[in-house]
């Protein structure tokens, strides 16, 4: 368990602020000083927003506009752990070169499935752990028009709230680990009764990969994702064989329960994880390849669309989800 160091919200080594806004005036009142301060300080300033906002911001920034990068939001917000890893990489890059990273980021909420929304919210929480001490500043505008739950979650995942040019401590902020624990305490839907079930008792995973590959090829899972699936499932089963307790059971099915069709591969065992494993949530710092186990589970998160881990007295379950092409027939296999 990592507890939040006292006063970290005020620490100037990393800031992560939420900007709740209702209308463009409130938006610009918060965003403009943030961007202009960064340009003045010689930061690398990145604004991730749609083309409409970009035009608005460029006009408002005036001569400072060329010093602000506007990357494509669909690319930037493609995948929660990858976005976080890239952001950490950029922040470390900037720090090495003697400046800081400053990001205005507005994740896409409206078109996301519930599972994706939950993963992006978790990423907001984990950002506080991952970027600690990097010198980066991140501001996340949240429109009042968003669903109430999204705005409420933002208040739990950002240490500070912006009011105009002022930032105040956010009383609703939750310790990121506590946030993740709550998130991962929600029970997962039961696997469907017709899920393919396979008990693993051989330590040689060559056969397992052949089995998983054959099953997955009968689903609409793109060939490109198949190798990622095999790497991910190998890692999880290797961990279960090393640290878990038999029986180790693999289940596979396709579903659309999370709002998007997905290929699901679940590995369960009867063991319990020791505390402090980190669950692969926090990306390792660039250049720090010290912790193999953490690297492994973190990399699995990069390889899958979503990783869901549930631990309890009844054993441990790791569920790997791979999004399927939208038009896909999920009744395959």
């Amino acid at each position: 368990m990592i507890t939040r160091p006292a006063g970290s919200a005020q620490s100037d080594s990393f800031t992560h602020r939420v900007l709740p806004y209702d209308g463009m005036d409130q938006y610009l009142d918060g965003v403009l000083p943030f961007l202009l301060d960064g340009v003045d300080a010689g930061d690398r300033v990145v604004a991730v927003c749609g083309t409409g906002r970009e035009t608005l911001l460029r006009d408002a920034l005036g001569p400072a506009a060329p010093n602000v990068e506007f990357p494509d939001p669909a690319t930037w917000y493609a995948h929660p752990p990858r976005t976080l890893a890239d952001c950490l990489h950029d922040a470390a890059d900037a720090a090495r070169s003697g400046y800081r990273l400053r990001v205005l980021g507005e994740p896409v909420w409206a078109t996301r499935s519930p599972i994706e929304v939950a993963e992006w919210q978790r990423t907001e929480a984990v950002t506080n752990l991952a970027l600690r001490g990097t010198g980066a500043s991140i501001m996340c505008p949240y429109a009042a028009a968003l669903p109430a739950g999204v705005v409420a979650a933002a208040r739990r995942t950002h240490p500070e709230t912006v009011h105009g040019a002022r930032a105040v401590t956010n009383p609703g902020f939750m310790d990121p680990w506590a946030y993740c624990e709550r998130h991962d305490g929600e029970p997962l839907p039961e696997p469907p009764p017709d899920a393919d079930t396979f008990k693993i008792d051989l330590p040689d995973l060559y056969w397992l990969r052949a089995y998983v590959g054959e099953y997955a090829r009968r689903t609409p899972l793109p060939e490109e994702d198949l190798q990622r699936l095999l790497v991910a499932v190998t890692e999880i089963v290797t961990n279960a064989l090393r640290h878990g307790e038999p029986p180790i059971v693999l289940r596979m099915w396709t579903d659309a329960s999370g709002g998007v069709p997905a290929f699901v591969c679940e590995v369960g065992d009867a063991g319990r994880w020791p505390p402090g494993t980190g669950y692969g949530l926090v990306p390792p710092r660039p250049g720090d390849a010290a912790s193999v186990g953490r690297f492994g589970l973190w990399a699995v998160r990069l390889l899958c669309s979503t990783v869901q881990i549930r631990l309890g007295d009844g054993g441990s379950v790791v569920r790997l989800r791979f999004a399927l092409p939208p038009s896909a027939d999920t009744n395959g296999a």
Binding site: A85, H89, R228, V231, P286, A299, L303
Partner: peptide, 11 residues
């Protein structure tokens, strides 16, 4: 593809 997903910079 897997190496790229993990990141050459991480290796």
């Amino acid at each position: 593809n897997v190496i790229e997903m993990v990141g050459w910079h991480r290796l």
